[in-house]
Design a protein around this nucleic acid. Sequence first.
DNA 1: TTCAGAAAGTAAACACTGTTCACTAACAAT
DNA 2: ATTGTTAGTGAACAGTGTTTACTTTCTGAA
Lengths: 217, 217
Amino acid sequence: MTVATSSPAERRRNKIRARILSAAESVFAREGAEGLSIRRLAENIDYSPAAIYKYFSSKDELVDELKETFFELILENVHLIADRSAPFAERARECLATYIRVAADKPYHYAAAFAGESVSTGPVDNEPGFEESKKGQAFNVLRNMIAEGVEIGAFRAEIDPSLAAKSVWASMHGLAMMIAHIPTYPALKSGQPAMAREAFIEFHADQVIRGMEAHHG
Amino acid sequence: MTVATSSPAERRRNKIRARILSAAESVFAREGAEGLSIRRLAENIDYSPAAIYKYFSSKDELVDELKETFFELILENVHLIADRSAPFAERARECLATYIRVAADKPYHYAAAFAGESVSTGPVDNEPGFEESKKGQAFNVLRNMIAEGVEIGAFRAEIDPSLAAKSVWASMHGLAMMIAHIPTYPALKSGQPAMAREAFIEFHADQVIRGMEAHHG
DNA sequence: TTCAGAAAGTAAACACTGTTCACTAACAAT
DNA sequence: ATTGTTAGTGAACAGTGTTTACTTTCTGAA
């Protein structure tokens, strides 16, 4: 895909663009958007600050590209689970848990992906472009999974998959944000934080799915 | 409470402090932390920028005070519902919904209250000081409610109220953040956004509570 | 191969930001 | 009346994102 459409000059340009993004990524992952300054970035790659504006029209645009790439990563990981042939309940729970795990791994990326408002956040919901965006695709994976659950009778029949997907996403988003903003979350007593977090993620995902389950009795 | 402990000079000082906070509040509510600059604030109240530093040691400290006051507001509103003598299920659902409604009313406050990291966020979980903070008190209200639900058999017996409270809070936090960052959330089709939002809040709260419910039969 | 034009890169400046410092003016208490 | 604390200020420091005018470098066509 997109093969021959690259002159030598174009390829050189793309390489430099990638170099900027790569340098930006490593700073951003460690210190977030506030820690990433154009001047620092320029120094890192031995360019003048103004040079960066030949490749990105603004810092926001640059950061937006990092965010999009990050959401691509989330989507990939979730897809890996969603496409597995495992029991529905388990598959669903692991999809949600995976979403959190990737977010927890790059807290600054996750927080930034939702922090910006207006345009920088990217298309939302059924605005034009949402379906094509990585966020939109992630939403669809979730909605389809819920629809499947309703079909096979695991979830309550009256559940609207689109509506429920938003609710479920909000719930997972909440935990992801908590973890992103508070390094020690859920900060249980003083045991191994990593294990406590894993257990908590599983509990939370389980809880969210329980909210949709049908009770045939 | 705190009556006679005020000399004329002290009272004057407190009045000016309050004036600064009030001016800051109105800008912050409309434009958030980024829109609130010390210079703009100083101009609003006819002082030099440096003067503000005689009352607040930093912008963060000033904003922290706005956040704490905001969380006081959330707590008040939630308490109003929690102390009502209504059926448990309804009471629980309305507490959660109220949390969202107050957050939705002051999106910048809500987002900021969780956005800052390290010290500015305030005490978290069982760190010293958490119990006394407004956030800690809100958490306790939630945990007690869940404990009550377990006691009367509405919620599953194996539920740990402290753990579940964190999960429930995360779920509500997620929706609050979504609404705070995306003005049109949940952006259903193109109907009245306010009504769609109200319905969605109820659905979400209901969903979260269902996750804890016991199923006798 | 030459030459016009586009693109790459830069130094310097603009308009901001939070914050600090040295200083003056006012007021409180001895 | 004098001392010392406090309120308040203008100017500066060290940053920020961004723009402008300028030079250099490279590319594509005559």
